[in-house]
Amino acid sequence: MDTIDKKILNMLQTGFPLEAEPYRVVAERVGIDEDEALKRVKKLKEEGVIRRIGAVFEPRALGYVSTLCAAKVPPSKMKQFVEAANSYPGVTHNYRRSHEYNVWFTFIATSRKEIDKALGEIKEKTGIADILDMPAKRIFKIDVTFEL
């Protein structure tokens, strides 16, 4: 990744041109031609630096509810637990973290009832009964842009 790639990434994250030919605009701003801009962005996607180009939706504005869950999962049950949790499309992020509560996942659903039902099923399927369920009460910041 060189300086031009970094400039392109900063622009695509924060000010993706909502214009008919967005990459021509990007190219002009960084001083290259459109074909090169397209080539660079395609490469950044292939390399996995860009996960996706699209919209990030606000679940609450669409009537969805969400929560953050944490569970204590012993190594012997890790695979089973992760598979059980990840099988729900509403579980969008799931990580192992450095704590006694070692598995942390987010859950987005159309209702609280749906989340309660899923957590009940995960508990039953895995025998892990201690799953914390911590919905957000207030949001101070969501800004997943990284200046490069």
Binding site: M1, L9, L12, Q13, T14, G15, F16, L18, E47, G48, V49, I50, R51, R52, I53, G54, A55, V56, F57, E58, A61, L62, I142, V144, T145, F146, L148
Partner: peptide, 14 residues
């Protein structure tokens, strides 16, 4: 409804 439109990066790879 849309918080942001643009590139979502994989931060480790970036």
């Amino acid at each position: 409804a849309v918080r942001k439109f643009g590139a979502v990066l994989a931060h480790r790879k970036a």
